[in-house]
Design a protein around this nucleic acid. Structure first.
Lengths: 217, 217
DNA sequence: TATAATTTTTAGATTTGTCTAAATTTTAAT
DNA sequence: ATTAAAATTTAGACAAATCTAAAAATTATA
């Protein structure tokens, strides 16, 4: 599996959550920031390698082998993210790019030892679960802040958008994973939400509310 | 700089120690396990990028920029080797291959933080010096075991050949970096050397003696 | 110093992953 | 049910890094 192939597998895996019936060429091209013709070429190649099935004009669906492979790449990525934050003083908005490179290094011993060195972490710095060696991982029952009930109390458990901009916004508002918040008011006009933190009360926009995952405490 | 370019720079840097007047195309091709025509192509490309000067039919010499770049790749490689041995339980014969990949990841913060995390090590697991951030490193005054004096006592400080086979040979004979040895006898017939270790006396062949670096204690 | 042997370079082809532009298929709209 | 729009695929081209085979330059030899 080449670097490009691994990146496509990962992209298809992510898109399958959103489009379980098959990932379209256009969606894949957009995710990979490339052109539809390139996506078609790669999908064909991955189909040849039995990593996915492709019905022309219909879409692509990962095979078991392809899904396993993608999950393994995700495992590598998330373990490196934990390493960067916990051992090398990276902040959660800095890790993604470097982990994109580290994730492609192929060595089972490397990843198994890294996993042990980190104490078998179950979640990466953005709250996403880390698959174990067999590819299994737990879904936490999380909801998006936008769907929170007024008056209830929640804990922040993850982000949908892990762009540097969004993460820095959260930092500057003292919102981190584990932060406990209470929903004070939902404004119907613009879908903004007023929340209480430990020492502050802030209003977050709809776009923030749609990208922050929370869980009832 | 692409991955291939970095590998060529490193190879030319190593060969310059042996051929200070210029690295020949054939020597470079052999080091890179490729063909002379490929080496020519890459040398031309690196000359375009001002990483080296190339006189056709004469050889290649790194520019200051090229040498700095090569030293930086070597720094990355050796720091990762230390990480693998000290933190992830790799043995000194297992690290090279994985470090070959890790060394190409481009992130100053990554390497600076890794360096600090490891406590600014000065030597890699094979005894080779690790350049600091500015590219400076100390040469230890070491000699090859083959040149040792009979009766004298030395400390093992490095290896010339870091192949798994050679390192495993040293392991099985309880020779590690830091091991103190005494030279008992040099056999003129086959240039083998009889040495004493802490709890044993062994005879090493000429090829071993030429690949183990030692230093007077 | 010619000539042979070796080394190096050039020329042209190949693979991977990408692109643009054109052709084809599917979906949507009238 | 046609036609228009959108999505997808195909065809052909390109850059990077490699290869083989042939040409050119250098070095060694007789």
């Amino acid at each position: 599996m080449t670097l490009a192939e691994e990146n496509y597998l990962k992209a298809i895996y992510h898109l399958e959550q959103q489009f379980p019936k098959g990932v379209s060429t256009n969606a894949l091209a957009e995710e990979m920031k490339t052109k539809a013709s390139s996506a078609t070429d790669m999908v064909k190649k991955l189909a040849e390698k039995n990593m996915l099935t492709h019905i022309p004009y219909q879409g692509a669906t990962l095979s078991d082998a392809g899904r396993d492979y993608a999950v393994n790449v995700i495992r590598r990525h998330r373990l490196w993210e934990v390493f960067l934050v916990e051992k090398l003083n990276f902040t959660w908005d800095e890790v993604h790019e470097v982990a994109e490179h580290l994730e492609h290094i192929q060595s089972d011993k490397l990843i198994d030892e890294l996993d042990a060195f980190l104490g078998h972490p179950t979640n990466d710095p953005h709250g996403d679960p880390i698959p174990d060696k067999a590819g299994n991982f737990k879904h936490i029952e999380k909801i998006v802040l936008a769907k929170a009930e007024v008056g209830a109390t929640y804990k922040c458990v993850g982000v949908d958008d892990s762009s540097s901009k969004f993460l820095k916004y959260l930092d500057s508002n003292k919102i981190a994973l584990g932060t406990v918040i209470t929903i004070n008011h939902k404004e119907p006009f613009d879908n903004s939400i007023k929340i209480s933190l430990e020492n502050s009360e802030i209003v977050v926009s709809q776009s923030v509310a749609k990208n922050l995952y929370i869980k009832k405490v």
